[in-house]
Nucleic acid binder design. Structure first.
Lengths: 139, 139
DNA sequence: TAATTGTTGATTAACTCACTCATGTTTTAG
DNA sequence: CTAAAACATGAGTGAGTTAATCAACAATTA
């Protein structure tokens, strides 16, 4: 029952980019050093976040990455779904499930796991990068 | 971000045993058929639950498994921790973490993930097998 | 034009999950 | 008393995922 390193690294990278937001760009090298992330792995993550429309990048000397959107408009749930997929804590809760029990009106497993997923989503979707960088939720 | 099949099967098996509670024992074969669980895998799970003190078993012909404790005294959180380990959604939230950031007073990742874990635990630790078999929480 | 930096895709080592197999022990039916 | 039924245990395995690495390339700027 875990989130991946990919998500953790992604959040840490965005934490650095949020701190730099509005003032400067950051190179992957700097992010990697500050947050102890393997640089090649970090690159995959930054690329994924760029493709998802969260970051822009500039090539060449003096290049680097920066946030496109405002930190308060990006939720942690959004980031984790980009990097890790759906938050569903068990297969049968997801939309594309072929679990035979899910077709019954009342599958106890699905019911409980559905409420777990909702609780997780409720926290992560209402917690933005701005809250995150501030160290707590202030909204 | 998932619970294992082991936990899911374990909950399904306990669902059957809760239904039989007080009236009869169930053989692994019956549980396996009713919940579509591979029988050898189910056995590992039943053994683990027995070692944890939730079940008793009787060998030989006419043998089988049965719940020792009352369904309302067993929480889903307890079951999942037996089969899957701690509920911590990310390494740094667990007690035995060597994450360099965890030592700082305020690691944002740890803070958020801690509240996610608490939310999950709050649901699962207050939901018993009795609620589970009833199809909803009634306490 | 050479150095720096981002971009992309392929590859890989290690690990975990979900089983499976082989073998043994206990109990009861007949 | 013997054979079948059932639980007990540990080792092994194939598929898939994770986390990371490598190689080669493209764009920018000093």
């Amino acid at each position: 029952m875990k989130f991946s390193k990919k998500s953790e690294y992604g959040l840490r990278a965005l934490l650095e980019l949020t701190r730099a937001y509005g003032s400067t760009t950051l190179q992957r090298h700097d992010i990697a050093v500050r947050q102890h992330i393997p640089i090649e792995f970090l690159e995959q993550i930054l690329l994924a976040l760029k493709r998802a429309g969260l970051l822009s990048s500039k090539r060449g000397a003096k290049g680097g990455y920066s946030l496109i959107k405002q930190p308060k408009e990006i939720s942690l749930g959004h980031v984790i779904r980009i990097l890790d997929g759906p938050l569903a804590p068990i297969g049968c809760v997801s939309k594309t499930s072929d679990c035979p029990y899910a077709k019954r009106a009342h599958c106890p497993v699905q019911q409980v796991m559905g409420s777990v997923r909702d609780a997780i989503a409720d926290i992560l979707d209402n917690y933005t990068l701005a809250d995150f960088a501030a160290g707590s939720k202030t909204t």
